[in-house]
Write a protein that binds this DNA or RNA. Sequence first.
DNA 1: GCGCTCGTAGTACCCGGGTACGACGCGTGC
DNA 2: GCACGCGTCGTACCCGGGTACTACGAGCGC
Lengths: 222, 222
Amino acid sequence: MTTVLIVDDQPMQRFGFRMLLESQDDLTVAGEASNGAEAVRLVSELRPDVALMDIRMPGLDGIEATRRIVAAGDRTRVLILTTFDLDEYAYAGLRAGASGFLVKDAQPEELLAGIRAVASGDAVVAPSLTRRLLDAFAEKLPKPGEPEAAAQDSRITQLTEREREILTVIGQGWTNSEIAERFHLAESTVKTHVGRILAKTGARDRVQAVILAYDTRLVEPS
Amino acid sequence: MTTVLIVDDQPMQRFGFRMLLESQDDLTVAGEASNGAEAVRLVSELRPDVALMDIRMPGLDGIEATRRIVAAGDRTRVLILTTFDLDEYAYAGLRAGASGFLVKDAQPEELLAGIRAVASGDAVVAPSLTRRLLDAFAEKLPKPGEPEAAAQDSRITQLTEREREILTVIGQGWTNSEIAERFHLAESTVKTHVGRILAKTGARDRVQAVILAYDTRLVEPS
DNA sequence: GCGCTCGTAGTACCCGGGTACGACGCGTGC
DNA sequence: GCACGCGTCGTACCCGGGTACTACGAGCGC
């Protein structure tokens, strides 16, 4: 049996949740809280499996309550609910350590599925927010970027401008064919450049060239 | 009407998907591909709304195919499917730019819902994977407080001790044979480790693994 | 005991990377 | 004029790296 604490400042909203949850055999409502402070207190007292947390509440809001609950190290998982899918709330909620983030206009089945998922240790995010998460991830991908300054290490300065440019993208993980394509060059030309870079810098292969690029700050860790 | 390209090397699997999709009024199968290369070709030719992409395929695998499809800038969204909910694949897939990631043993309704969500621009992730996604995402966010010690990036923490050890020396430019020699291992063993590291982290090759090692501060620029 | 992870090891195969050449056009400086 | 650096391109070749498999013992949890 999964126990749930309902946290919402609107009584009618709490009532709706309670009805929905109690209609399920495997879910039960451990209690209700109408603000963040009460939620924190009830979590430590009732130790529910899941806290269904509204964000907008008078006094201590849902984000801060989540932070405190998570910080307390309780086993209670927090599933945040909001009326709008504003991503700033999502970010804040995730930072606060929430296990999930759903919008209130979700289908009841989605909500129930979310509660069960969170209770079992999984996490859930509303589809409209998942997109943003993935985008944020994608930004971490090695992207074709423009060469930048820095590096007066002699191993670097002896390189020609073109060679430094190519070493920079090697340091960003580009393959020869990618370099060729994006620079509008033949792959053989790229190989020629790479070969000269290795010869001049003393790097054995492109892996060591990458290390050199980092060590000389030609590229910076992200 | 949402058009879907089915990509899977197993004919029976494709058949099953086709039956499921064709039973829906709003979905239609644009075509089928049995490997990654064919998938890339068919996407640019048929321009489906969604590509239902298996990961394990001979030749060009689903991850690389996804990477190319996304890189090509087609409007086609990629929904990755796998038999196991191995998160290493999830990472690689997400980093490749996929719009979703589901496990094959999901309920048909989940799969259909996933396809529709992806087609409409949202993203979906299997619940068992969402947890890790959130953890990883939370780590990327600017945290108030501690100066943030070294590598607790989830791409790193999911590695075993041995794998981190090997990634470290890869980040120092060692070749497989050097690693084998100095660690008293067979080169095949080293290759096995390297392969797992790449799969788990989503790095394409050892060059990107080196970059990852630097970015996560597993190794520091000298 | 059984399933699972982890570390180990092997074979076979393919491909990208690196090397070793040669070649050509374009500037710049002597 | 001519050498030289530089950027471009090509062919041919070899090898290290990566993939796709399979396999097995140790240790651990149920």
